[in-house]
Amino acid sequence: MVKPVVRRAVRGATVNGESRRFNLPEREADGDWLDAQQAIDGAPAALRTSVTVEQPRTIISRNSSPDVFFDRSINPYRGCEHGCIYCFARPTHAYHDLSPGLDFESKLFAKPQAAELLRAELRKPGYQVAPIALGTNTDPYQPIERDWRITRSIVALLAETRHPLTITTKSDRVTRDIDLLAGMAAEGLAGVAMSITSLDARIAATLEPRAPHPERRLRAVRALADAGVPVYVSIAPVIPGITDHELEQLVARAAAAGARSCFFIPVRLPHEVAPLFRAWLDAHFPDRAGKVMAIIRELRGGRDNDPDFFTRMQGKGPWAELMRTRFRIACRKHGLGDRGETLRCDLFRPPAGPQGELF
């Protein structure tokens, strides 16, 4: 089943790109040939967005990475219409024989049975409780959540079962679910990380063209904080030569909005993300593209990307150390604490089975 197509004007990737890791042939996406045909008024035709229903057998993804704070996550959607050029999840679209470029942000997949699958997993006798992370791969509150409401159904189930939850998002749409999150937070069951990469609307419009304006995200931080929801600001990624000069201001604005803490990650460019990012630099910042990539390689041990645990999140060398020093000073100045708080796992109540639901 494919939902009706929606027409949009702006995309993040400047090309569709290709992947050779899964024998994906280089080809033109719908948007390439649509954009090549000029509309009557001379403007490029918009690239269409499609959403296809995916029917997985399970919904919880597990990981054993030693440098992340969760061991399980849920991704209600594949692909992300926010179109963030730096998104490390872009290469996952190659598993579907689709491009990590324009396909990733325009050919989306939704999992409407997610809450039902989750209910079945939480009901299993051997289930061990630990926080479930939403938003670790693609954004659970991207634009299509407005109509699909899959994330809402997941949060509602976790609230019902008093299961701990963390959310990472770039969207102020998360405030729609404050009615659920506030109650969970009061019991130590929920926390939200709002990702804000730049306060410059012009930079944000090219970096993450369909994510909400940075000021809307800061207002969401304030709304969550006022509702008693522990909220943090993720300054990720920090891009040298593009956004790194904003580090102190981002920390200051996060603190003023009520964030409990901040964290940052230098830009990562795994697999097909690197050539897409280079093409984006050439299109939007040709005057400094070479400098930006040179600093990134210094951060990443001479490569475009460092996949090693721990250093992939922190970077290496003098540039990385300078960022860390500036960040620590800014957090101390504005009274921001450690990255997060421990969520409770002792309140969980397994969901009722079919027979229990009859009474």
Rank of each mutant, 00 (worst) to 15 (best):
K3Q: 13
P4Q: 14
V5E: 12
V5K: 12
V5M: 12
A13D: 05
T14L: 11
N16Y: 04
G17V: 13
E18P: 00
R20V: 15
R21Y: 15
L24P: 00
R27P: 02
L34V: 11
A36G: 13
G42V: 12
G42W: 12
S50F: 15
V51E: 01
T52P: 00
T52K: 07
S64I: 15
S64C: 06
S64R: 11
P66S: 07
S73R: 08
C84G: 02
F88N: 00
F88W: 13
P91M: 11
P91R: 06
T92L: 15
A94K: 03
G101F: 09
K107C: 13
L108M: 05
Q113T: 10
L122S: 02
V129R: 01
A133Q: 14
I144T: 03
E145S: 00
R146F: 10
R146N: 05
S153C: 05
V155S: 01
L158T: 05
A159E: 08
T161L: 07
T161K: 06
H163E: 12
P164A: 06
S171W: 07
L181W: 03
L181Q: 01
A185L: 06
G188D: 08
V192E: 03
A193C: 06
I196E: 04
T197A: 09
A201D: 08
R202F: 04
A205E: 07
L207A: 02
L207H: 03
E208K: 05
E208P: 04
L224N: 00
Y232D: 00
Y232P: 01
P237V: 14
T243A: 06
A257W: 05
G258W: 13
A259R: 09
A259T: 08
I265C: 02
R268L: 05
L269R: 06
A283K: 11
P307R: 12
F310N: 01
W319A: 15
R324N: 01
F327K: 04
A330M: 08
H334R: 13
H334D: 06
R344I: 13
P351S: 10
E357Y: 06
